[in-house]
Design a protein around this nucleic acid. Structure first.
Lengths: 346, 346
DNA sequence: CTGAAAGCGCTAACAC
DNA sequence: GTGTTAGCGCTTTCAG
């Protein structure tokens, strides 16, 4: 004797051999109906402990893996949430994605990640691919989406959350903060510290531009219209930061303080300054953005604008989950704000 | 008149309102059978150009989005490939993921990304979640997987590719290189350069340990058994690198050269050295690993072990796609190798 | 080149 | 508590 029980003969009609065990197989072996197995898996509280155990034993023995394609089709709930971010190379969105992943996982959902690139040329095509999987919700980065994208998202009639930016008119829900305000706040902060000669190194992506705008505008209000500016292509890298700082230092005017579009750029800028034996923050002070790598006491002499990147992801997941479960939210727009962290280096 | 044509009355049986247009709707509006619409979408060469155009016009007009849950269920092909990586925070895997995504996208497949964490405690649970979506292939990081994981992967009867490491006995296919050899090669390289006092700073993940082993073993063969070692918890960060270097420098013996487990650590180590006014590479030379941020001429004074991270992703996609389309591969194991890049700084 | 019939594996809705 | 029936939206297969 090899085994007391064996899998029942299969009644496959198709020629494509799908070797896997189905819910029906489990039901048969456990001596119950398929529906009971389904319940044992999804609403165990509706099933007798005894039946439950029998079912689970069979599942264990057979190595049954539920087919969520079938389940999703039948129930119109894919247990999938899609997130579209420009890139994960510069680190700024990584924690947001991680937080999203974690929170959704807890709730029994999985994240489907899409990378749209800078600029978001592929967002539309990506969206098609994404929507064809029938996600139960979508998380977008930024607030600038093509009319086409907005239309299709609305047509999908699922919760949508935009992140990492602020607008009074989101597609649906929003978790973010104002980049223009960041720029203004940094300018004000540095002005208050007595600086008068400013530099600006940042990438050419949308949100960085908004910060740049706010920064320049606030300085202009203080009568300062002369800002040494170097713009690099997104996404930011250490190397681009070095290069940009090189360009800036090779010019005539040398700023007292440089506001960098991201901490990654700021690190590169620091590298370049150091390799030229320029004292930081003594000769030139640096302000970054994003709050990356600044959690440790051995941090480099950089100040930054700290953003709770995890919170954005967590809250985005939260609002989507709330809406999926039918709750109506008190606020469709959550401003998570930001915080200037001056390590005494500006 | 509002419109010349309108969507047909729906015959939904279910109470859950699924608002979206179906393939059947498109067929009806185009005056063809559902099957023809399906062909127009998936095998257009089998359909008359005329019919094709009519169908596409209706699709355009209605904003039809195919339902891949249904398609996947019917065809047993989800057009989904899953990848499981430990983390995307340290950057080392990011380009691999990007390359995978890109190559698969070209072929009409989408990547479903799973983050298993260090150590891969969640790999098993993740795998369940992943397999329940019926991916057409799976890409894993590393070669150490629980027997349970191996069993279920094998049972899924889909192409599996392990990456970023080397073994003669992969589960199925493999794209990677030997970390032990990396350690040995680095040791040999540094010995040849005349160094005799070595330091080692690395994370406690599996592959880093293998490099460490190779490094120490090769030094031992040269009669050097005294290696200043600091191990930090994975994943690597700049801050951990700084901290580790601090620890090392506070000890008595000061190495001539430090082999860092990752470029990220190396950067942190460099930061710490500089903040202590230790000349790099004059007083202490540094060797990193991974080839991150080393593509630009303004690179910091670090040498590294370059790995073609994109190639790993691209090749992994390639072998999976090949196997999906039924090709048998000449080699199930691809060694992509590595390259020591000495920028004259060791 | 196009269509009709029969499911893919699962769950909603309603019986019992 | 558990079973039955009838699909979800698509593709396979086979017939024309």
């Amino acid at each position: 004797m090899r085994k007391s029980k064996s899998l029942p003969k299969r009644r496959r009609a198709s020629s494509r051999a799908t070797a896997s065990v189905t819910l029906g197989d489990v039901a048969q072996l456990a001596g119950v109906s398929p529906m009971t197995v389904s319940r044992a898996l999804n609403r165990p509280e509706l099933v007798t402990p005894d039946t439950l155990e029998r079912v689970h034993r069979v599942i264990e023995r057979t190595g049954y893996v539920p087919n969520l394609l079938a389940g999703g089709l039948a129930s119109s709930r894919s247990r999938l949430v899609a997130a579209i971010v420009p890139s994960i190379t510069n680190g700024i969105f990584v924690e947001t994605v991680q937080a999203l992943t974690d929170r959704l996982w807890q709730a029994g959902y999985q994240l489907m990640l899409g990378l749209s690139g800078y600029p978001a040329t592929r967002e539309d095509a990506l969206l098609s691919a994404v929507l064809s999987r029938r996600p139960d919700g979508v998380c977008l980065t930024g607030i600038n989406h093509s009319p086409e994208t907005r239309k299709r998202l609305l047509a999908a009639r699922i919760p949508i959350v935009e992140t990492w930016d602020l607008t009074p008119t989101p597609i649906d829900m929003l978790v973010g903060f104002s980049h223009e305000k960041v720029g203004e706040a940094v300018a004000r902060h540095l002005l208050d510290k007595g600086h008068r000669r400013f530099g600006l190194i940042s990438a050419d992506d949308e949100r960085a531009s908004a910060r740049r705008r706010g920064f320049v505008a606030e300085l202009a209000r203080a009568g300062l219209t002369d800002v040494e500016t170097v713009v690099v292509p997104a996404p930011s890298t250490l190397a681009l930061g070095r290069q940009a700082m090189g360009t800036m230092l090779d010019r005539r005017a040398r700023p007292q303080v440089v506001f960098c579009g991201s901490d990654t750029l700021a690190h590169g800028v620091l590298e370049e300054a150091r390799s030229r034996h320029i004292d930081v923050p003594g000769a030139i002070a640096l302000m970054g953005f994003g709050g990356l790598e600044f959690t440790h006491h051995t941090s480099p002499p950089l100040s930054t604008v700290d953003v709770d990147r995890s919170a954005i992801g967590r809250l985005a997941a939260e609002v989507i989950l709330a809406r999926i479960s039918g709750q109506s939210l008190s606020d469709k727009v959550i401003d998570v704000g930001f915080r200037i962290v001056d390590r005494g280096t500006t």
